[in-house]
Design a protein around this nucleic acid. Structure first.
Lengths: 189, 189
DNA sequence: GTAAAACGTAGACTTTTGTCATCGTCAGGA
DNA sequence: TCCTGACGATGACAAAAGTCTACGTTTTAC
């Protein structure tokens, strides 16, 4: 299963770093069922996950306990609550599986060791952080100005796989739209 | 003027790093008037700015050329389009002054030299990036689920200075609210 | 296998938000 | 000084989004 992570890293760095096998051995393989909670807000985020198979949801609750989904992470991507993971502060977000998933998890200590064993991992971390940041910025700039209908069109254009793969409820919460409204608008396309 | 930046850095790092004076000398002082454009989307972002005095707006245009403001940066904070600055890719955002401002600018080469001269600057960069990321995440999680009225209340609670300091038009675009609606809701408080 | 729960769709209705036009005020430039 | 253009407020109206209920279908749990 670490094969997928190896490919991912080689792809990112352009070549296979020395000691990669050693690093890979530091990851714990987790076979998670659907709907399994990986992180609850208020707790400290202890792991960074590489999603080898499956799909994760990063979400918060609003004042009426409705979920709003900040991010949906599919296979071959990283997922964590980086702020909490890096600082040790309580996490502000929740993470759960939305499909049966295979995850490769690494904790802070392992992460630290990884940085020392393979100096290029500093670069990998920076890349993850920068990609996460870019993603957030993009999401703000795109979504603040778009109507609900245009947000749906956007999703169909740029992440069409999610439309077929995820429940309407989840998509609606990702798009910041009421689920009834989502159902109606989708029918109008 | 670099005095303000020195204080900022010492505050962040907890102590004054060696060679700080040398590093400070690499910054260019810019006295910018109100409404001056510092970055236009499509161009490469060449500088990271430290806002010593004044206020900057980071914004994009939607399909009807309305501005939507992703961030407002006041004195004692950093401002840039980090993705473009780091990668050399065209910027996706615009930056302008909304008040007469004093800025300390450093370009990529200076930034690079800074990293080498003062190793702790790697940490400063990471801090800037992490803070920017945390800020974006917070903005998404807060704003996606809040009504226009609640967004105004949020601003009054957490960044009250902006309410008095900025034009209604700018605040409305920061909150993602139509300016007429903003005017009405504000009157109802 | 069956009962219960969750899900997706739909209609009727309410609330929120956006649009447009108007008007008085104020600040900056000629 | 006067003109002009930007700004903020407001009313009337339109459009978008949210709420609630109901119902048939699918999925899940026991």
């Amino acid at each position: 299963m670490t094969e997928l992570l190896r490919n991912h890293i080689v792809k990112r760095l352009g070549s296979e770093p020395a000691n990669l096998e050693l690093v890979l051995s530091k990851f714990t393989v987790i076979a998670a069922k659907r709907n399994q909670t990986l992180l609850t807000q208020g707790e400290v985020c202890k792991y960074v996950y590489f999603v080898a198979e499956g799909c994760l949801q990063v979400y918060v609750y609003d004042s009426e306990m409705n979920e709003t989904t900040r991010d949906i992470v599919i296979e071959d991507n990283w997922c964590s609550e980086l702020i909490s993971f890096g600082s040790g502060q309580p996490a502000s977000e929740n993470i759960r599986t939305v499909e049966p998933s295979t995850l490769l998890a690494i904790d802070r200590k392992g992460f630290q060791q990884m940085m020392e064993t393979v100096p290029q991992f500093d670069l990998v971390y920076k890349q993850i952080l920068e990609a996460s940041y870019a993603n957030s910025v993009y999401r703000i700039n795109t979504f603040v100005s778009l109507s609900a209908l245009d947000r749906i069109k956007w999703l169909m254009q740029y992440r069409p796989m999610l439309m077929t793969r995820l429940s309407s409820k989840l998509i609606a919460s990702y798009l910041g739209i009421n689920k009834d409204v989502f159902s109606r608008l989708k029918a109008k396309l």
